[in-house]
Nucleic acid binder design. Structure first.
Lengths: 258, 258
DNA sequence: CGCATTGACGTTAACTTAACATGGCGATAT
DNA sequence: ATATCGCCATGTTAAGTTAACGTCAATGCG
């Protein structure tokens, strides 16, 4: 559990440091069985941190810059899962659920597979792949211009598609939070998310605490616009109280009971 | 080449007949090396006809290719490739190309990878997967309700998305042809295709000869509405002449020069 | 306090892949 | 026409990966 996560983190650090590592080197370096190394790197590869190469692993080519940081954010699977599980409380069978292109919302999608029947709407290609061909899930993909960085469809076509639809609940995330303002880096993404806000009866924001006290280029919305803001516990009491005083419907999600 | 396609067709038939087959059985049944079987089924899996299962292969569960007829349409690769190659004559670098959800248009997409730069629009999930993350191809996905039978997005959302766009050329197919009328079986699909017709300057229909003298539930359009109708040579002189007399801009495509 | 459950890990046999070698076949040049 | 080149399909083998099963420890629960 915790230990496995730490082991994965060590592996990722090691691979990131060297750029490319043979699997046998990992076996030797960490002194565990080849099978265990495989299981670890499979998970890291699935998270998009590493890439398997038949005999070796490399860092994912795109995220060269803040690799260590990005990894840390990505690997926060425990936090993401906790947020996703908490978000399920706001979804009922039979409803229409809208998901944005965040990896957090994607984590929610994996859990939605058990809340059937359901209609799900998203512009995320990863989430689309998850929901395609699932019995009792009516899936609507929001089209638009494909954007590789987000692995999602965005742009005018997407905004207009959203505007035609209505969802019971929107589950989304943001790039950064400062005060009671949520930010998004990309102007086209922000428009899509704002359209999603307008098209949903209930709005839920999922934020891991590492995103607080940061900004990004564009203002997305005020936290008070959301029916619930789910944050992980690392947020801290001081900030939590400040948000609640400002009228934010905050709910702290425990990552794990250790 | 031809022979390899036939071998793949035999393999697919065999797997479809039995539903699931162990790879060793295929090796024995066809009397070739395990490696060759792997290479064949890898390709079939990539085409979405089969699914590999570590030691065995099954038919793709989505239902799209389960009927032998459906499969044959898919695997008639020689005809499809010939049509697709011919269709390339009507596409120039820099244009906006719209592709429908037919497997024939999907074959065109594979060839479009070399005609860059290009903007491509489609509602086919298979084609979307092909065009995603290709340099110098600007890809726009038409969203909508996912329909597993066609592995495509259709419905009102899709129709409206099409209506917002304009393409230089539409490349599409139909379920059946009788006289000078093209038919499509599904009412929702027909609406999307008609919207595509309205959104394109030039319209190209790709038809393999097996579809002639058949009907389907809904009228799609008259063949004279297309700027070019590409048909495979099995069509026959009599029918070809009749179509031309009726004002159809017909072009016969040779499958292969033997 | 058992007793079931869960997750991590190891072991092995079966399976898959990469990489290189072979041979056929058509195309182009001589 | 014949030689040669290059491309595929195929075979062969070694290296690598996976599934399946078993063990063990931690956790949860009556």
């Amino acid at each position: 559990m915790i230990k496995a996560d730490e082991r994965r983190e060590e592996i990722a650090d090691y691979v990131i440091k060297l750029g490319q590592v043979r699997i046998d080197d990992l076996v030797e370096h960490f002194g565990v069985s080849r099978m265990t190394i495989h299981r670890h790197i499979d998970r890291l590869a699935q998270q998009g941190v590493l890439r398997k190469l038949h005999g070796a692993v490399t860092v994912q080519p795109s995220g060269l810059y803040e690799s260590a940081f990005r990894y840390r954010v990505t690997v926060n699977r425990a936090e993401k899962d906790a947020l996703a599980r908490a978000a399920l409380d706001y979804v009922e069978a039979g409803q229409v659920v809208m998901l944005d292109d965040s990896s957090t919302a994607n984590a929610v999608a994996t859990l939605l597979l058990d809340v059937k029947p359901l209609t799900v709407i998203t512009n995320s290609v990863a989430t689309a792949a998850l929901l395609t061909n699932v019995d009792d899930i009516d899936f609507i993909c929001l089209g638009g211009q494909y954007h590789g960085t987000y692995n999602a469809y965005i742009g005018i076509v997407c905004e207009n598609a959203v505007a035609q639809l209505r969802a019971n609940v929107l589950i989304c995330s943001a790039s950064a939070i400062t005060g009671t303002t949520a930010f998004i880096q990309d102007p086209n993404v922000v428009r899509v998310k704002q359209a999603m806000m307008a098209a949903s009866v209930k709005r839920i924001l999922l934020i891991d605490h590492a995103k607080f006290d940061r900004i990004a280029l564009h203002v997305f919305d005020d936290l008070t616009s959301f029916d619930v803001v789910l944050a992980t516990e690392g947020l801290g009491d001081a900030r939590a109280q400040a948000l609640e005083r400002a009228g934010v419907k905050l709910r702290i999600v425990k990552t794990k009971a250790p």
